[in-house]
């Protein structure tokens, strides 16, 4: 595997292109709709493969880019332009889902607590394996949940053992509180490592030798 020793600074990630879509917060199109609805099948399998990537899902419980329809994480009964009589379906539980998929790093943060969130993202990126960070990030334009979430977010109890998957699931299923911090973490081999391992003995393709099987 080629490891490129490049040191990037925050400046390298700055684009001179100003987002013009929405003045609200500028965090569009990376959220609960993409990951838990249209892309949920891919999220599941990326998790099962334990590929060494960090997924930060910015959850605003709405479809921002398409201007405010219901999303998989919207609460039951939620009234939007696409659910004028209230949301009839149940609500998707991101953390519980990630835990049952045996994701090797599961955490939650909140955009109103950027320092803590940044720390979680950093830990997720340092984690070797698939890391999943549920980032509560309200949409001030279409579904402002700042006040509600300010009240419901609670740090994960200090005595929680992040290697205890069942306890983590208990915390995830709590509907009153939204726990913040690392729910679960375990280091185990990734699929990219395993795939790399498979080709350790690889040799140049030899056409003549290959075709001999058909002679």
């Amino acid at each position: 595997m080629i490891q490129t020793p490049v040191t990037l600074t925050p400046k390298d990630y700055k684009s001179e292109v100003k987002p013009t879509w929405c003045p609200g917060c500028g965090d569009f199109g990376v959220g609960d709709g993409d990951f838990f609805s249209i892309g949920v099948g891919h999220l599941v399998h990326a998790a099962l493969r334990n590929i060494d990537i960090t997924v930060v899902v910015m959850d605003n419980e709405t479809y921002g880019l398409t201007k405010g329809q219901t999303s998989p994480t919207s609460p039951h009964g939620h009234v939007t332009k696409s659910t004028p009589y209230g949301l009839l379906a149940s609500t998707f539980n991101p953390i519980a889902t990630a835990l049952t998929l045996n994701v090797s790093f599961v955490a939650r943060g909140y955009s109103a607590k950027p320092k803590e969130l940044a720390a979680l993202i950093e830990q997720g990126m340092t984690h070797h394996g698939f890391s999943f960070i549920h980032a509560l990030s309200p949409c001030p334009t279409f579904y402002n949940t700042f006040d509600a979430w300010d009240a419901s977010v609670t740090p994960i109890p200090a005595d929680h053992d992040p290697s205890d998957q069942m306890k983590a699931l208990g915390l995830a299923m709590d509907t009153e509180k939204q726990y913040m911090g690392i729910f679960y973490q375990e280091e185990r081999p990734t699929m990219d490592q395993a795939a790399h391992q498979l080709s350790q003995q690889a040799q140049e393709f030899d056409l003549d030798k290959y075709m001999a099987r058909y002679a």
Binding site: G41, H42, V44, H45, A195, L198, S199, Q201, A202, Q203, E204, F205
Partner: peptide, 20 residues
């Protein structure tokens, strides 16, 4: 064959993922 020549193979969860 792919792992034997230094390549990588993946069975995807559907054809969208395969092409992606």
């Amino acid at each position: 064959e792919l792992p034997q020549v230094g390549g990588t193979f993946m069975q995807a969860e559907d054809e969208i993922a395969a092409l992606a």
